[in-house]
Design a protein around this nucleic acid. Structure first.
Length: 191
DNA sequence: TAGTAGATCCTCT
DNA sequence: GAGGATCTACTAG
């Protein structure tokens, strides 16, 4: 149905969507770039906001797939998730890093840096650079200001343990574009 | 260069 | 009242 966006089936399990999102270009109001790093979160995942059931904050995560779930982290930063699976499931993919391609000047101004790596190499940074706030929580990824463009197929995707969480750290649900210098932390090259 | 701690505020218990 | 899917600056080696 409409869960297909940029060639991605958002009704698939979060770890599948997280892998497929690598290489896809995401824009917010024309500003953004290519996704180079994601993390998958699922309802049955102790590290996930959805683990303890629906609340006012994570309501969007239990909404329809291919929608945005934006939350505040550590009271300071915003983090952007894409909802997947089906409505009511409570699964999502955290966008951790992108390669800046569009509206770079705008991002540099928002982030107050000329270093492209510092623009979007982390969940909080990319939200600041792209102007993501809670105003976008629950918005459809198929409608303005969001825009998703299909990525290059056949990209090499690497995986590893997730970052910045205190539970289920051994689950390899972090995905990244192999060889990209724009990931927040380098992946340990898997053989 | 790598490691550590503080900032800051919303949400849940 | 406590903790968190982070970022940044500061310190030690």
């Amino acid at each position: 149905m409409t869960e297909q966006l940029a060639g991605i089936d958002f009704s698939a399990p979060s770890e599948v969507v997280a892998r497929q999102l690598i290489g896809v270009t995401v824009l917010v109001d024309g500003v953004g770039g290519r996704i180079v790093e994601t993390e998958a979160y699922d309802r049955e995942d102790p590290a996930s906001h959805a683990f303890s059931g629906p609340t006012e904050r994570n309501e969007a995560m239990f909404g329809p797939p291919a929608h945005a779930y934006v939350y505040r982290s550590y009271g300071i930063h915003w983090c952007l998730n894409f909802v997947c699976r089906e409505a009511g499931h409570g699964a999502g993919v955290l966008i951790r890093a992108i390669e800046p391609l569009y509206g770079i000047d705008v991002m540099r101004e928002r982030r107050r840096t000329d270093d492209d790596w510092l623009l979007c190499s982390g969940p909080g940074k990319l939200c600041q650079a792209m102007g993501v706030t809670r105003a976008l929580n629950g918005k459809s990824l198929a409608a303005f200001p969001f825009e998703l463009l299909p990525g290059t197929r056949g990209l090499e995707v690497v995986e590893g343990p997730r970052i910045g969480i205190s539970k289920a750290m051994d689950v390899p649900w972090r995905f990244g574009l192999a060889g990209s210098r724009f990931v927040s932390k380098p992946f340990r090259r898997s053989r």
